[in-house]
Amino acid sequence: MSTHAHAHKHPTEVPRSGPPLIEMKDISIAFGGIKAVDHASVDLYPGEVVGLLGHNGAGKSTLIKILSGAYQRDHGDIFINGEKVDIANPRDAKALGIETIYQTLALADNVDAAANLYLGRELRTSWGTLDDVAMEAECRKVMGRLNPNFRRFKEPVKALSGGQRQSVAIARAIHFNARILIMDEPTAALGPQETAQVGELIKQLKAEGIGIFLISHDLHDVFDLADRLTVMKNGRVVGTARTSDVDHDEVLGMIIAGKCPPGAIPGPGALQSPAAAA
């Protein structure tokens, strides 16, 4: 539970050293005439969790898919540690250290956990064939840390429970030395105990200096886990704020009405209204 921020005149500036881990500047993408993302800018610093909020169709998943290489932006730039990069496909994203846990998990249901863990970057023997036993051993190690009770390594992932499948998807994201992690609704299908586990994991990753984009519609989770949050509406950024500078009602106002409160830095989607005077 966050404390209520009272009448801050300006959003607080955080002293930072170095460029942001990720900076997406002025990103636009349109699908068949509809602007899914319209000149949106977000950034992320190492060891930080930035929450991405908004209605269904606000553009948050699309923005993040541009970062993970699933879509190609029409306009705008992406900078990693200050350097401009081009992410043409999911491989490029992974090569840059960007890992994603998708809302649908994106697991191949008919193969087992180890195969999913290494999908697209399989371990191979010196002959060039798949080294299934090595992959399984690594999978056990990773899953052992995330979900110690998990036993069903040889079964197709289709047969696992929702939480177990989630663990596999998370394992896949954290196993390859990611610098930036994108989590799209990670706790949507989880019970309270598993949600707490995810929270613990996020704190751990933050401590290791990894930057995390967290898409969630659950305000409690965002206020719990995120340092900053960005709200999008109709493809545009309404505003960005430190979670300690705003409260639930103000954020709801951003999501629903696009009203940018005093504690937040407004974006192009903010409502220009005399009532929102500083």
Binding site: K94, N110, G120, R121
Partner: peptide
């Protein structure tokens, strides 16, 4: 087999 199981997942895995 991965593509047969989930074509979208395969694409996202960079296949």
């Amino acid at each position: 087999y991965a593509i047969g199981g989930n074509p979208e997942a395969a694409e996202l895995a960079g296949i």
